[in-house]
Design a protein around this nucleic acid. Structure first.
Length: 525
RNA sequence: GCGCUGCUAGCUCAAUUGGCAGAGCAACUGACUCUUAAUCAGUGGGUUCUGGGUUCGAGUCCCAGGCGGCGCACCA
């Protein structure tokens, strides 16, 4: 499959078998012994295939509404993971669960009792084999007729059964009220997905949302492209990058913090409506709304502007609400309805002035903003980059205005210093045509009327370089090839970036680590 | 990065003032042909995250480290 890994031979391979027994728990040793016993008896705990003619869900659908002790002539082979077992001597019950969480009971009778609704027995040996070999968590195949039990529970009455896969580790407590700890869920998502319905629903909701985004964009003539994740310069956003190294090229590379500069090259090349859904990497702090790698939708439309892109963004978010409502309605926050109602918009300087009780304009000196920050009790970082007009205005706005927002809100017209890729406002001096979309207190998306004047763009990059020299480690690098592209002629363009994880968060109220299948965690014990 | 807080059986948790390390589920043995978290009888299972220290005695107190959670800072 893959080339021989060039790993350090002194480090044991991850997941190396721990056969010594001493490191195994009692329960794991019991299961390993069962596996060995099955092999010794000529059985196969991991057969290449087992009988399977239908799914548990299909059986449930086909036989809904049967009365108690019904016997159908529908003979099926079903498979699933054993999640409950109820021994009853010569009549045995187990509950199987398949991938989507659907469960179905199976019954094993030692001997047939047609008079009691049990037309088939599996025999003493097969029943004893189940009891000695099958543990909670094992995958099994059961072949037999669809029946209902004396209490009306839809079941498959086994004529035969086969082990499909032996689980060597026990599942966690499956009973109600005994949830896995958050750490255990994240570290062993494969178990979380078996045990917790919400974990399964989140995966489905996410797939549905991403599908809805692609569908809406595709329907409007947008082309999906993939641009580099490994970049020689990091650009398109203000953030610290992860860096890595190419052996073949013998040079430093950066994991992208944004695809923006490449998608704009696409627009220059005539791909007038493009988008990309992919991962960005930012070497910043992690919390319930930030992850070092996160999924982003970026889209650009030639001859669009930040107003047209705001409308497109709203349509995409609303399509996502409907997608979750269809696939995982239980996950959808009641508050998500507000996303379907009209959205509001405020101007950054106007709403900040109102909240601060003092007029703040693009010409307000940084010293005044620092004084205002102190007055409202907002901490200001010591880096040079944190004490300029632009960042002060943005931070003051987040501090004073964000808590007062209700419902989805576009905040418009940002300071120019912090937005080096955005064009100046068409009529308001000192601000740029940029909005951020806030939903439920966090930034969900950002949209621009893109800067397309290569001379102004070069000036902005030079200013960023100056900030970097002054100690702002998030300032952008000067990208000559990107400027060359812009000098080739870029049409007026609107652009948007929207966090896909955050979109899920906005719809479900979950933290970012719950919307991602395998969030980064430190290696545990 | 800073502050607070947690880590005990496979899972979820308890353990009084520093004094025999426990429960439920899971596991093991046995009984049971209609159970729904089956029930009944019995049994086993612990490096109390790691390493030091104090003490007659440490899950508990102190120090250092590891890994979480929460808050703050930064970022989206």
């Amino acid at each position: 499959m893959s080339d021989a890994p060039a790993t350090d031979p002194s480090t044991p391979a991850a997941g190396a078998p721990r056969e010594t027994g001493a490191e195994r728990s009692e329960q794991e040793r019991v299961r390993l012994d069962k596996r060995a016993r099955i092999l010794e008896g000529g059985g196969d705990p991991y057969p290449v295939s087992v009988p399977r003619t239908t799914t548990l869900a299909a059986v449930r659908e086909r036989h809904a509404g049967l009365g108690a002790q019904a016997v159908t002539d529908d003979e099926v082979s079903v498979t699933g993971r054993v999640v409950f077992q109820r021994g009853r001597g010569k009549l045995f019950f187990a509950v199987l669960q398949e991938g989507d969480g659907t469960r179905l009971q199976v019954m094993l009778a030692q001997e047939a009792r047609p008079d009691r609704g049990l037309p088939v027995g599996v025999g003493a040996d097969a029943l004893a084999a189940w009891k000695s070999d099958v543990d909670l968590g094992d995958h099994v195949s059961v072949t037999g007729r669809v029946v209902t039990s004396g209490t009306g529970e839809l079941s498959v009455l086994a004529a035969s059964w086969a082990l499909a896969s032996k689980a060597l580790r026990p599942l966690p407590n499956l009973y109600e009220g005994a949830e896995m700890s958050e750490e255990a869920r994240v570290r062993a998502r494969y178990v979380d997905l078996v045990v917790r319905d919400q974990a399964r629903q989140v995966v489905r909701a996410r797939a549905a949302v991403v599908g809805a985004l692609r569908s809406v964009l595709g329907g409007r003539g947008f082309l999906e492209v993939e641009t580099p994740m490994l970049q020689t310069l990091h650009g398109g956003a203000s953030a610290r990058p992860f860096s890595t190294r190419s052996n073949a090229f013998d040079m430093e590379l950066f994991l992208r913090i944004a695809p923006e500069l490449f998608l704009k090259r696409c627009v220059v090349g005539g791909l007038e409506k493009v988008f990309e859904i992919n991962r960005n990497f930012r070497n910043e702090g992690a919390d319930s709304t930030h992850s070092p790698e996160f999924a982003m939708l970026e889209m650009y439309e030639a001859y669009g502007d930040y107003d047209s892109m705001a409308e497109l963004t709203r349509d995409l978010v609303q399509a996502s609400v409907r997608a979750v409502r269809e696939t995982a309605p239980d996950l959808l926050l009641p508050e998500a309805d507000e996303l379907l109602a009209p959205w509001s918009q405020v101007s950054m300087y106007g709403s900040l002035s109102a909240a601060a009780g003092a007029v703040v304009t693009p010409r307000t000196p940084a010293e005044e903003l620092l004084a205002l920050a102190e007055r409202v009790g907002m901490a200001v970082g010591d880096d040079a980059g944190d004490r300029g007009h632009g960042k002060l205005v943005e931070h003051l706005w987040e501090h004073l205005v964000v808590p007062t927002l209700s419902g989805p809100t576009f905040v418009r017209d940002f300071p120019v210093e912090t937005s080096p890729l955005v064009r100046a406002h068409r009529s308001e001096p000192g601000v740029v045509e940029k909005w951020d979309l806030y939903v439920r207190g966090f930034e969900l998306a950002t949209g621009y009327s893109e800067l397309v004047d290569p001379v102004v763009q070069r000036d902005r990059f030079v200013e960023q370089a100056r900030l970097a020299a002054a100690g702002d480690d998030e300032a952008m690098q000067l990208d000559e090839d990107f400027l060359a592209a812009m000098e080739t002629g870029m049409p007026p363009t609107g652009g948007v970036g929207m966090g896909v994880d955050r979109l899920l968060m906005a719809l479900t109220g979950l933290g970012i680590r719950e919307t991602v299948l395998f969030p980064l965690v430190r290696p545990g014990r």
